[in-house]
Computed example of a mutant assay.
Amino acid sequence: MTPRDAADDSRWSDLDRPPLNAAALRRGLVREAGLWSDLDVVQSTGSTNSDLVERAAAGTAAEGTVLIAEEQTSGRGRLDRHWNAPARSGLFFSVLLKPSGVPVARWGWLPLLTGVAVASGLARAAGVDTALKWPNDLLVTIAGEERKAGGILAERAGNDGVVVGVGINVTLRAAELPVPQAGSLALAGAVSTDRDPLLRAVLRSLEDWYGRWRAAGGDPAAARLQEAYAAGCATLGRAVRAELPGDRSLVGEAVAVDADGRLVIATGEGVQEPVGAGDIVHLRAA
């Protein structure tokens, strides 16, 4: 074995980070009457989102397909920001959704819906309170400080689908954090970091919320999604600076998330201005 081979093997030999059990996950999640139709676990890939978007375009993935990677080498966030994490240190997965019957104008709620589902699933399975930073970050509290432990990325897949990707740091250690502002479930004191039940809890929660939202025709108020998101959103009630294209910025208090999923910012001039996730470059504390 060459030194490089040994180094590559060592990435997979951490006993605190056992592999996911794909067969058991399929038995627990894929069922005839359920949303999840197929589930694959791959050892390593660049981006599960990119892979699933390609499969959807080729017609080889049905709604409810779940693609999970033990390691992502080119994970992507919003605005094509890149990140990666040690193998088996988190949950890195994408799902294909085809919300027929829901107006396309309401599809922008899918990443927010996913945030609510992830937060509620982790609260049950990991015993960790996860807050949502609009539009796509998952926050945990470590030593009294809010830190980003995950993110969500939604991408169109053809004319009738959306691929939603989720990345959650589960067992990332302090020395492995990419930036001081990052965190993980383990560092936040999770009662369990076993990724199999965590993933099941998140996907079952996502199936539940997606079903409610779809049954309501995508109406976030009727599905009680708008209410649930507002209750878990750490951004609301805070002074923020929204950095917009063209070196424009908007400063004020984040007061609501409207029916279109936009963040409403009340400025010092008494104007309430909504900003969409696609229109914002950065959202920071003011």
Score class of each variant (00 low, 15 high):
284 R>A: 13
87 A>W: 03
155 E>S: 13
97 L>H: 10
58 A>W: 07
24 A>P: 05
217 G>P: 02
3 P>F: 06
212 R>D: 07
91 L>A: 01
124 R>I: 08
132 L>W: 02
130 T>H: 06
192 S>C: 09
202 V>T: 10
98 K>C: 15
208 D>G: 12
176 E>K: 02
35 L>W: 04
150 G>F: 11
158 G>Q: 02
144 G>H: 04
265 I>E: 15
73 T>E: 02
190 A>Y: 00
208 D>T: 13
271 V>D: 15
265 I>S: 10
243 E>S: 09
90 G>D: 04
41 V>R: 00
66 V>R: 04
198 L>D: 03
30 V>G: 07
38 D>N: 11
79 L>S: 13
218 G>Y: 04
269 E>Y: 10
42 V>P: 00
118 V>T: 03
131 A>T: 08
273 E>D: 13
211 G>K: 06
148 K>L: 02
244 L>I: 01
46 G>T: 05
207 E>S: 06
40 D>Q: 15
16 D>V: 11
219 D>V: 04
265 I>Y: 14
58 A>G: 13
14 D>R: 06
215 A>H: 03
248 R>V: 14
74 S>Y: 03
217 G>T: 05
82 H>R: 15
146 E>I: 06
205 S>Q: 07
7 A>Q: 14
239 A>F: 10
133 K>P: 06
215 A>P: 06
239 A>M: 12
211 G>Y: 11
141 T>M: 07
249 S>G: 12
172 L>A: 01
154 A>H: 08
193 T>A: 02
227 E>D: 15
239 A>V: 10
167 G>I: 00
179 V>E: 14
174 A>E: 11
101 G>W: 09
72 Q>T: 02
118 V>I: 00
231 A>W: 07
282 H>D: 15
27 R>L: 12
275 V>F: 00
216 A>Q: 04
60 T>A: 09
107 W>V: 11
244 L>T: 03
54 E>A: 15
256 A>N: 12
234 A>T: 08
188 A>L: 04
247 D>H: 08
104 V>P: 06
96 L>Q: 11
101 G>K: 01
220 P>K: 01
203 L>N: 03
212 R>V: 07
139 L>M: 15
15 L>G: 10
114 T>V: 07
60 T>Q: 02
233 C>M: 11
19 P>Q: 11
197 P>E: 05
49 N>S: 11
13 S>F: 08
90 G>S: 03
186 A>M: 09
238 R>V: 02
53 V>Y: 05
214 R>Q: 15
136 N>L: 03
263 L>I: 01
75 G>W: 02
251 V>R: 05
123 A>H: 10
38 D>M: 09
117 A>E: 10
67 L>D: 01
145 E>Y: 01
